[in-house]
Design a protein around this nucleic acid. Structure first.
Lengths: 119, 119
DNA sequence: CTCTTGTATAAGCTACTGCTAATATGGTGG
DNA sequence: CCACCATATTAGCAGTAGCTTATACAAGAG
């Protein structure tokens, strides 16, 4: 649904008040949006922070206690983070351990830096 | 502010399967979430990309043509980006020009790097 | 095997997000 | 003054996100 809206570009240049704009790479956009929408939610953001703070893997049971929603909600949130490539998961006995990916680390670091720098 | 987070407080230190987790700085969390939710939307992401691509300011009328939603929707989107600290705006005659902030630049760069590195 | 514990999935409901349409504001030129 | 343009604001609605409850699956312990 994204692609066809913009493709006509060249034919009619209506007199805009300034410059025509480059198109946005829709593949990159899809990837970025999956990441951003996955992080952009109270529960999932807090899960990510907690997973990132403990750097040797966190199991679901601990997260559940921490974020204040049901076990089911935590599981759903973690699945979404996994799908978005923000965490890895490994099984160990009957527990599952989650760890942050490079994407998560890089973005949280960037956000930390930004908060530090201006105001 | 450690310790009160789990208001549910079943007092006893339940035997969790691994370690207790640090709390998340709720002030940082609020700021980050404002940024992430502002970026994490088709329209607003595309606006940000287009504003970032043209580095001498973009006026609303051009953006409106590009993203395929109504003028009202673009205005609302830009307001939200402004509130989240992702764009600056200046008035010039009866037009308004938008430019990316450091936050936007840093985050989009990070996202670009991440897509480049793995896969 | 059964019972228990840890996690995932399904269904359903509420609340919010983001759009459109209509209207208001504010600067510019006749 | 009024008409016109560019942008902002309001109201209202459709679609979806994210929660809860209930249920299913997986792995140990007995």
């Amino acid at each position: 649904m994204v692609g066809d809206a913009i493709t006509d570009g060249t034919t009619k240049d209506t007199e805009t008040c300034c410059t025509p704009l480059e198109d946005v790479d829709s593949d990159a956009m899809a990837t970025d949006l999956r990441v951003l929408t996955a992080m952009g939610n109270d529960t999932r953001y807090e899960l990510l922070r907690r997973i990132s703070n403990a750097d040797d893997g966190v199991c679901v049971c601990d997260l559940e206690a921490a974020v204040g929603v049901s076990q089911s909600a935590v599981s759903q949130a973690l699945s979404r983070l996994y799908t978005a490539g923000l965490v890895t998961r490994r099984k160990e006995g009957s527990w599952r351990y989650y760890e942050p990916t490079e994407t998560t680390t890089a973005l949280l670091d960037t956000l930390d830096d930004l908060r530090g720098s201006h105001e």
